[in-house]
């Protein structure tokens, strides 16, 4: 165990891979690794890349990593794809769009399955990002599952959230709805070589003028990731957002909010596990049956489970 962490700290990529697996599988060793490594995290800038399925997130993530590499920075990438709700299996195919990075010693790409988590991420995403951060990457890019309107969790994991849009995917009312657009720090219109890109850029800009006065207005950028176009401007916009976070005091505030959220959500999982352990399967099954037969409401059933903790 100690030797694994030693090798990790020496920069051994195999050790990094092993630590990530232990953390992802939530083993006791994984928690031990995290305890040792967490104090070393907090230096990397984390970037979330989110947007619809097929919007070009993987290609954009790869091209953005290449842009940071040209500037001499190192990059860790975590790419999340969905797990099957039925078999829990997954096809993780984001690497296909990042082939050019595979043999670059300054880049590490890890695919993660969502394993039942909601919100386009994976249950242990924050831990895996912390591990990559502790390994010493300058940037950690998190690519979400294809997100629709409401997958906003990425904003609590990444410091800068990049929302990827495409021309031809709905009118401007779509973009006015509450949800994902509100969490974007940088807006990207990818596949900008397709018709309608300029119209979408102006629609997004027009919408942003409706934001409350005094709030930071996210930039809207055009990219064609398959050709590497617009990536330097995107890298600049991300660095500018980082500078804004630091100078405005927003960085400290966001970190505090994210940490609170993380601690509470882990506490929630621990409590649920304790309730499960304190409840015989037959009792749970009987409550579930009563709810299914509409003799009991689900809130009362949950209350009686929670009451077992006090006993």
């Amino acid at each position: 165990m100690d030797s694994l962490i030693e090798r990790f700290l020496e920069g051994d990529r195999r050790a990094l891979a092993r630590v990530i697996s232990r953390v992802e599988n939530e083993t006791a060793e994984g928690r031990e690794c995290l305890r040792a490594l967490y104090p070393r995290s907090g230096r990397a800038h984390s970037i979330g890349v989110t947007g619809g399925a097929g919007s070009g997130k993987s290609t954009l993530t790869g091209a953005l990593a290449a842009a940071f590499r040209r500037r001499g920075h190192t990059v860790g990438i975590v790419a999340v794809d969905p797990s099957s709700p039925f078999t829990h299996g997954a096809i993780l195919g984001d690497r296909i769009r990042m082939q050019d990075l595979t043999l670059d010693p300054g880049v590490y790409v890890r695919s993660m399955a969502s394993r039942g988590a909601l919100g386009g991420l994976a249950p242990t995403i924050d831990d895996v990002v912390a591990v990559m951060d502790a390994f010493g990457f300058d940037y950690v890019i998190i690519e979400t599952v294809g997100a629709g309107q409401d997958e906003v969790e990425i904003a609590g994991t990444a410091l800068t959230t990049v929302l990827v849009n495409n021309p031809g995917t709905g009118d401007d009312i779509q973009a006015m709805k509450a949800g994902i657009l509100e969490i974007a720090d940088v807006l990207v219109v990818n596949k900008a070589d397709h018709p309608g890109a300029d119209v979408l850029v102006s629609q997004l800009q027009a919408l942003l003028t409706l934001s409350p006065a005094g709030s930071r207005r996210p930039p809207v950028l055009k990219t064609t990731a398959t050709r590497g176009e617009g990536l330097d401007a995107l890298a600049d916009a991300i660095d500018e957002h980082r500078a804004y976070l630091e100078s405005s005091g927003e960085l400290e505030r966001q970190r505090a909010i994210d940490s609170r959220h993380q601690v509470l959500s882990i506490a929630r999982a621990i409590l649920l596990e304790r309730i499960r352990q304190a409840t015989p399967e037959e009792e749970l099954e009987s409550l579930v049956q009563q709810v299914a037969a509409r003799r009991l409401d689900p809130h009362s059933a949950a209350e009686s489970l929670a009451a077992r903790l006090r006993a």
């Binding site: 797990s83 078999t87 829990h88 299996g89 997954a90 096809i91 993780l92 195919g93 690497r95 296909i96 082939q99 695919s111 399955a113």
Partner: peptide, 8 residues
């Protein structure tokens, strides 16, 4: 039920 990484 496996997690399959496909690289192309």
């Amino acid at each position: 039920g496996c997690e399959v990484i496909y690289t192309g």
